[in-house]
């Protein structure tokens, strides 16, 4: 009988019982849906011991290499220690190089990890304030341009435990702990002609900015369209940088959107980011779509992009974020 260790507790798995069944029987809530190894909602990570190869069937090689497995079809034949994917992250220190304002409530934090971080722009990391206190932040930097430094955008939240600390207390030169990178929301080279539609609100721009820089520096040939929205002009940021990019790269177009009452300046589109973008892109067959920011915008946007013809597998939004969090930047 194999023992399954989770979060310091050891559970005996009865003969033929899956990790999902065993943990659920002991009161651990594991997200799951199909119970047949198909939907991957119960993906976990083995941190000690080995799981049978069958428990990793259908997973990407990168996931297999990291010890990810599907709890619903995993019947271990040896003792294992398991964790949820975002709990089992490797942690290492990074130096704060610079904190600079992007607008009145968003700062860019430049971090230099003490060991090189292997990441794709648009993925996210966990940043730890202390034991048990951490937040996810998306990566807006690109290894090609920013070398070993990584950039995150942090919006100051009312009473934000971590964002307040970053805005008010943290200084250049200090060390913080960060995790390895996570997430599927990034640029994939190999389809240089494909159209890319990126829609974001607020600091949801961070991963999109990383993805755009990554695509353009990879020599992406297809259309790259960014719609970034806020209630007013003051809520937008990186306007000059994005405008300069659109001049340098003819296939990149930047459309800032303002949904509030103010009359938008020249070159800005009035309205909600999703309405503006979808009106201009009624047919998204063959496009890849990225959505980041306000959760309602993201979930409505996924549906609208899909109904407009984008394939489900070509619609990307950060999947590991808790449902209540708006974007990996707050």
């Amino acid at each position: 009988m194999a023992k399954i260790r989770y979060s310091g507790q050891v559970h005996e798995s009865r003969h033929g019982e899956s990790v999902l069944e065993c943990l659920t029987a002991h009161g651990v809530s594991v997200p799951s849906s199909c119970h047949a190894g198909v939907c991957q909602s119960c993906m976990m990570r083995v941190v000690q011991g080995r799981v049978p190869a069958a428990a990793q069937s259908g997973l990407k090689p990168a996931h297999v290499a990291k010890g990810f497995f599907l709890a619903c079809i995993c019947r271990p034949d040896e003792d294992v220690e398991v964790a949820f994917i975002d709990e089992a992250l490797q942690k290492f220190p990074a130096e704060v190089v610079e904190i600079s304002p992007l607008n009145s409530d968003i700062v860019r934090v430049r971090l230099r990890p003490r060991q090189p971080l292997d990441y794709s722009p648009g993925q996210f990391i966990r940043l730890y304030k202390g034991p048990g206190v951490s937040r996810f932040y998306s990566l807006a930097s690109v290894p090609k341009l920013h070398h070993e430094d990584i950039h995150i955008h942090v919006r100051k939240m009312p009473n934000g435990l971590v964002s307040g600390w970053i805005h008010e207390t943290l200084h250049a030169g200090e060390l913080v702990d960060i995790s390895e990178s996570l997430g599927e929301c990034f640029y994939l080279s190999g389809h240089p002609e494909q159209g890319l539609l990126l829609m974001g609100t607020g600091c949801g721009l961070a991963p999109l900015y990383g993805i755009i820089l990554d695509a353009l520096t990879h020599g992406h040939q297809g259309a790259v369209r960014l719609y970034h929205g806020s209630v007013n002009t003051a809520g937008l940021y990186l306007i000059e940088e994005l405008s300069a990019l659109s001049e340098a790269f003819p296939n990149f177009e930047y459309v800032p959107c303002v949904s509030g009452d103010e009359a938008p300046p020249q070159g800005f589109a009035p309205g909600m980011v999703l309405d503006v973008a979808m009106a201009r892109h009624p047919d998204l067959s063959g496009w890849r779509v990225y959505l980041c920011g306000n959760p309602d915008m993201v979930s409505t946007g996924k549906r609208e992009a899909f109904l407009a013809g984008a394939s489900m597998g070509e619609i990307f939004a950060d999947p590991f974020l808790p449902a209540s969090s708006a974007a990996a930047c707050q």
Binding site: S33, A36, C39, Q40, S299
Partner: peptide
């Protein structure tokens, strides 16, 4: 949720 629903549709179709 679209992604969860798509996973369920896949399980259903299988």
């Amino acid at each position: 949720d679209m992604a969860k629903q798509a996973a369920k549709q896949k399980a259903f179709l299988t």
